[in-house]
């Protein structure tokens, strides 16, 4: 099926890659500029990186951003996995459809609407805006993603396996922990990683529900960008880009390992 690409096709793809990566490399390049703007590269320096690490506030924000991503991802994975298991166990078609539609609502909703509605929610229940509200919001918009990643694995699962386990005298708990969870494990990991990336990428929702001095990286970059260009932001970008690559690599490593394990189980 793979036929050779024409020269024009290759050129088009090459151009696409160039366009998609140019802004990112442009940012990274200027993080080493000794000048103070993103034009006219003067000479190589690491001073902007030193600035990042000397700024306690920035370090705190970086740590908090990662903390929110990991913890919200974890919460979302637990709730989402249970939710997916619950959804497939609903036998009434109408209920099942309603649950799936609700699930989709949060995925398709514009972030600005999610942010605004959560802001109303948190204010009404009298929650202080800050770490907790950001954490809950991130977990909230990640839950449906986890559900979507886990659901197909559950649907692929063979009913006979569960019946066999029950026939052999396994309790429901055993079925869940020894049969179901191991089978859907790749979906769980994929959901967790998707949740993390959504959390790290989010700006709009966090912008609405944060407060009391709590900030994540994207909100901080927004306020920095509003006061003009500082190459410290470029240095952070480079660090974040490298971190993203590590997460992506980790994701493929874990899912491939899980897939291999799955293949072993099946064999």
């Amino acid at each position: 099926m793979t036929s050779k690409l024409s020269l024009g096709g290759k050129a088009y793809l090459a151009l696409m890659f160039l366009i998609l990566y140019a802004p990112i490399f442009y940012l990274m390049l200027y993080s080493f500029n000794s000048g103070d703007s993103m034009s006219g590269f003067e000479s190589f320096t690491l001073s902007h990186y030193a600035d990042v690490f000397a700024d306690t506030r920035l370090i705190v924000i970086l740590l908090d951003t990662v903390l929110v991503a990991l913890l919200s991802g974890f919460i979302a994975t637990v709730i989402g996995t249970l939710g997916a298991i619950g959804i497939v166990s609903v036998r009434n078609r109408w209920w099942r459809h309603t649950l799936l539609s609700l699930n989709n609502v949060l995925i398709v909703s514009p972030d600005v609407v999610i942010g605004a509605s959560f802001l109303i929610l948190f204010t009404l229940i009298g929650a202080k805006l800050g770490f907790a509200s950001v954490l809950l919001s991130h977990a909230a918009f990640s839950v449906p993603i986890v559900v979507l990643m886990v659901l197909p694995k559950l649907l692929e699962m063979k009913t006979s396996l569960i019946d066999a386990a029950l026939d052999l005298g396994a309790s429901r708990r055993d079925v869940l922990t020894r049969v179901v969870l191991p089978m859907i494990q790749p979906g769980i990991y994929a959901g967790f990683f998707m949740a993390i990336t959504y959390s790290l990428d989010d700006f709009a929702v966090t912008f609405f529900v944060t407060g009391n001095g709590f900030s994540t990286l994207s909100v901080e970059i927004y306020s920095m960008a509003r006061t003009g260009i500082t190459l410290t932001v470029n240095a952070i970008s480079t660090l974040v880009f490298l971190a993203t690559l590590i997460v992506v690599a980790g994701y493929y490593w874990v899912t491939n390992r899980a897939r291999a394990a799955e293949a072993e189980v099946r064999a």
Binding site: T56, I59, V60, L63, D64, V66, L67, L70, L71, G73, F74, T177, R178, L181, P182, Q185, I188, Y189, A261
Partner: peptide
């Protein structure tokens, strides 16, 4: 299942460490 439990513990430990680091930096 073991792998899931191990991963969960790893994530939670990482969270605890991040929280501690961020908290102490803030406190100083």
């Amino acid at each position: 299942m073991k792998s899931l439990i191990r991963s969960s513990i790893a994530v939670l430990v990482a969270c605890a460490l991040l929280f501690y680091a961020s908290y102490t930096l803030n406190a100083t």
